[in-house]
Structure formats: C-alpha cells, structure tokens
Nucleic acid binder design. Structure first.
Lengths: 347, 347
DNA sequence: CTGAAAGCGCTTACAG
DNA sequence: CTGAAAGCGCTTACAG
C-alpha cells in the first residue's frame, strides 16, 4: 500500500504538501499540485483512514446496535440509516444482538440484555464510534437496559426516559385512530378489536386510538367487541371465533398486527364467511406477506425507512451540535400510512 | 478518555509496561501488574483500537457488502456472519448497496453496479478491512461486476469464476430433486413445474433436479406439465391456470419460489379445488409468509444462516492463511432442507 | 522484570 | 507557496 511518504519522495515534495493537496487544505502551487496528484494516481494511493482518524480524532463511523437483524422491522430501518449515512460520508459498524434467537420475545428476560449491552457498547467505543443508534424489536422503555454512554445515542423502535437522549418512533395512537376511522367512514359500526399483549405500549396506544375514533364519530363502544391476543397468528384465529359468539357480531375487525389479522381471516373463512364480503379485516405493520395473502390485507404501514433516516438525522445533529437551543430531544413520532388492499369493503 | 500514558503516570510505570499488562505480553511483576490493572479500572480505561490498529497493522474488521439488506435472504445471511464474527472478535462494517430500490430486479443494469462497487470497495479498503464478504440478491456470476481486490473476498448468494476466489451457495439441483422426490414418494406422478425466469441459474439447476427425480424414479416426463413464470405471484397464478388446461392435469405442482406457489394456490382455490386435498403445492425459499399462509406452504428452506457462517469461516481461513494446500476455493454448496407443511398431501 | 525510543500513516500549527 | 517537526495512542524490539 502506497503511503503519503511514497508520494512525497516520488514527487519531490514534503509529506505536508502531499497532505495538503490530497485534502485541498492550504495553498499549493498548481504545478506542484498536479505533480502530486499524478503520482498519487500512479501509485493507486488510498488514504489510510485509521491513521487519519488517529490524528484528527474523528472516525466518521457510527455504531448501529440492532436487537435482531432478522426481525421484520429491522432491515428497513437499517436501510434508512444506510441511506442517510452514505450521504453524509459515515460508515456503519453493525452489531447484531441476535436477541430473538437468544431469548425469544420475552423481554422480561432483560438480564441477558443487561449483560450484553455494556459489552457491545464498550466494543463500539473502543472502535471510536462518533455516535450510536439502537434499534429495538418492540417499542418499550429500554432506559434500564442501556447504561449512559459518552457519545450521543439515539433509540428507534424503542425509547428512553433518560433526559437529553432522543428516540424516534411512530405514532401508534393516530395510526389506530386512522385505521378505525377508515372503517367507520366505510359504514362499519360494529368493529371488533384484537389487541396484542396487554402489557405492551403499542397495545395500549392503539387501543386508545381505536376508542378515540369511535368516540369522536359517535359510534358506541362495546367491550364485547374487544379481545386480547398475544401477537401470534393463532390468537387472532381464536379471538375472532370468540368475537363471533357475540349476539350481534362485528362487521369489521381491527387486528393490532398482521399475524393476528391473518388468523382472523382464517377463522372467518372457516366459519363459512368471506373477507371482505361478510367481514372486513385490517391489520397493522404492513408485513411483507400481507401483499401476497389471499385476500391481500389492508394494513397500517410503519414508516420504518423514515425512522432510520430520522434517527440518523438526529444523531448527526447531536454529533455536530447545531445551536444549543435546537438540540433535538424527547420522542420524535412519525406517522403511519394506511395501505388499502382487498380485505376491507364498504358496508 | 484515559490513555495508556495516564495509567502509566498514575501507577508510576512506563507505557511499555502498561501495554504489556493490558495485553498479557511479556513478563511483568505481579504487584506491578495489579497496580496497573487497578489504575486502569479506576480510570475506566478503554483501548483505542484505532491507535492499536495503526501500530499493529491489523484492524479486526471485515467489510460486508450487501446488494440489498431489505431483500428476504440477506438479513439471515448477515446474521450468520455476525454470529461467527462475534466469536472470532471481528467487527462488521456494513455497506448496503440498496440495489433493489435503485434498479429493481433487472440485473442486466449492471452499469449501476459497476459504478458503485469499486467505490464502496475503496471505502472499505481505506478503512483497512481485512477481508470482504459480498452478499448477492440472486445467484448469478458477479465476476464482471466486481474488480479484483487486494484483500480476500468471499461471495455468497452469488458466485465468481475468478480463480482463487471462493463463493458459498446452496445446492439447487439436490433441493429440487428432493422436493420432487418427496411428491413422487407420496404417490404423485403428474407433477407440474412452474419455473422462474429462464435465464436464471436457479431456474436451470432446479429444473435439472426436477427432471432427474422423475427419471430416476421412472416417472414419465411430460413437457406439458412445464410452465415458465417470472418469480412473481401473478405468474404462479396464471401458469397454474394454464397447467389445468392439460387434458390430464397435475395432481401436484412444484413452484420454483414461494411467491409463485402462493399464486398457484390462489388459482387452484379459484378453480373450485382445494389445496392439498385436490392438488398439492410445494414452494421454494421458505419465505416467512409460507408459515402464515392458509394453507401453510410446504417449501425448501435455503440454508441462509449457515451460508453466512460458512462465508465468514472461509474468509477467516483466507485471512489466517492456514497451510497453503488447504486453501478453500471454488464454489461451496450447502444443502437445503424440506419444510413440511399443510400444502402437500399423499395421493 | 522494566523502560527509553522508534514508529505505524497521517495532519497541522508554525516558520520561512 | 513549501517544509520540518511534533504528535494522535498505541506496540515492540532492544537494552539493561
């Protein structure tokens, strides 16, 4: 590998001058400049960024910690980070906790997390990252799991209550409101809701959005239309069967994720009814399969790509501390988008 | 950030000695050692790996170039790389070409690739990566798209004909053979095949596997049972309808990917038949949705995780050049696994 | 067992 | 406009 010193000797100037022409800093005579550039090209010179980083104390790398790369939300968030980082000239050091494979979806097992996180943060710090983005698998408070860090850290698809730290998420309440409102506007008044696990924040917020939509549009709230699932397909199936024991069964169902929506559709079809002719079903997450399902499933798309971009944007602002007062903080919320497909029909 | 020099002054020894105790190199007196360790802990010392790398000329980082992180195969391959890299103490610098978003699935537009690849490889080289793994989106020859690199590079989910370079892939022929054989063993003799685009290597190899299975089991090959789709769901639907214009229509269909299998199921159901009661359907890829589909789809799982691990393993061997003769090379092929679900039934 | 010194490949005041 | 020199934070022969 050619070094600056090689260019210097071959072009008969000092390393200082070579550095200046390579970085366009300082005034260098035009012929000196050309000579140096020519030699650099001949030698196929590539900057040693390790050396440069050491001297300048800037690495231009950010650490991205993902709880699990193979969970559906993560690649697209990462993609957004990549896009923005590429623009800004940052490299990504990726750490994959592989959490799902290690502990499944049981986030009460945070001892595993508590043990891993400090280690991977240390690693990242040793590699001199300028900031960290932490991508969760499920929206929840991770403040207890993640120790304070001496570089900026922004959380996405999870959040922190730590002051000065920033998270970027999506707006669950509005999303559920919009989904419910969509059904109401289509003439539905008996709208079943299949919630996820009750101890989860999305379940709470989405339920709130559902209720608000009913209230604001003067549709009576009937607790008999509410069931609690566990996010898995089978619970959507079972809760739907239960919903249809109601004397005046729903004409539409909002499932709080796509898997339960698929379960709901299966149950409805099994009961001899058809989606959307007899019952409309709407999901949440816009998982890939919803487009392939038969019928294709109307669902709320989470702005994953935008969350990644925004997270990187916020991190970038932290790193380059723009005017002290404009410092971003708290929880940024991006909007979801309704993706209309075949599983919903006007009443 | 505390430096070795800080530890040295505070514990009254030289930086050389501090370095020795921190790295367990050289003999250091036990009380000196303890003193140094104590001070290091007090100062919350973290190695500056940038400085260490510069001196030792080893970065312990490998570059992972993915054609598109959001395409289904990529996260799981990455996950395998992560697992192995973590064990071996390597960091991952992730570069996402975002190819699908840039050019879709038209790999004839390789000019975009040809322009991007040298750039990202240069970046990686400037960051002093010790090796590179390139993850394709579709099995194809990428030799023309990727210039020679001065560090080891291994390809996965794509391959190269460049000598000394190594690719790791899965065995398409055996996989298709096994899928077809499975149907034959269940008593099927009229087995339709819906191929992907004809210019693709997987289409070729899988067709070969299908034919071999028929031949070896003395099932007559009927070209009337063969249709060519384009990997998309609609083509599976349409080709299935065509297959059923055959005077003696198939009792089972092998679709060369899961999307076309989903299309096939849809078509079969629409024609008033049932899967698997009337027709069995088998897919390829084990996409996530196949488990949620109704009926759930029997399919061939590609060993993505293992491919990632193996790629990292091979790269690791290149980096640490174990005995010259054992150098891995050529195309490593891993086996697929049949995932049995509801869409197939004995005849 | 321990330390002084050189050097990895860069950048950057500073002097001329 | 150009160069000599110091230094970023480490490691590692080498000498003692």
């Amino acid at each position: 590998m050619a070094r600056i010193k090689d260019i210097a000797t071959q072009s008969g100037v000092s390393t200082a001058t070579v550095s200046h022409v390579l970085n366009n800093t300082g005034r260098v005579g035009v012929e000196t400049r050309e000579k140096v550039l020519k030699v650099a090209a001949e030698l196929n010179y590539k900057t040693n960024k390790i050396a440069k980083s050491l001297k300048t104390q800037r690495s231009y790398v950010i650490g991205v910690i993902v709880e699990d790369l193979t969970v559906f939300n993560t690649p697209e968030i990462c993609d957004g980070i990549n896009e923005f980082a590429e623009e800004k000239g940052y490299s990504i050091s990726l750490v994959n906790l592989r959490l799902f494979k290690r502990i499944g979806t049981d986030f009460t097992k945070t001892d595993v997390l508590k043990e891993m996180i400090p280690k991977v943060i240390d690693q990242l710090m040793e590699n001199q990252v300028e900031g960290i983005i932490y991508i969760g698998n499920h929206p929840r408070d991770v403040t207890e799991d993640i120790p304070p860090v001496s570089v900026p850290i922004v959380y996405t698809y999870c959040y922190t209550t730590r002051e000065d730290d920033c998270s970027v998420n999506y707006d669950d309440k509005s999303a559920a409101y919009e989904a419910t409102k969509y059904l109401i506007d289509l003439g539905h008044e008996k709208i079943g809701l299949i919630s996820g696990l009750i101890n989860s924040i999305p379940s709470h917020d989405r339920f709130y959005g559902y209720q608000t939509a009913l209230a604001e549009n003067e549709v009576l709230f009937d607790p008999g239309y509410i069931r609690t699932g566990d996010w898995k397909i089978d619970s959507g199936y079972e809760m739907t069967k239960e919903l249809f024991t109601h004397p005046d069964p729903p004409t539409a169902i909002v499932a709080l994720n796509d898997l339960m929506a698929a379960g709901a559709i299966k149950a409805i079809q099994e009961m001899g009814m058809s989606v959307p002719e007899d019952v409309s079903v709407i999901g949440f997450d816009n998982r890939e399969f919803t487009a392939f399902y038969s019928p294709s499933i109307t669902t709320m798309a989470i702005p994953l790509h935008e969350m990644g971009e925004k997270a990187m944007d916020v991190l970038f602002q932290f790193i380059h501390k723009t005017g002290s007062s404009e410092q971003p903080n708290g929880n940024v919320q991006l909007s979801c988008t309704l993706v209309k497909r075949e599983s919903v029909k006007a009443r």
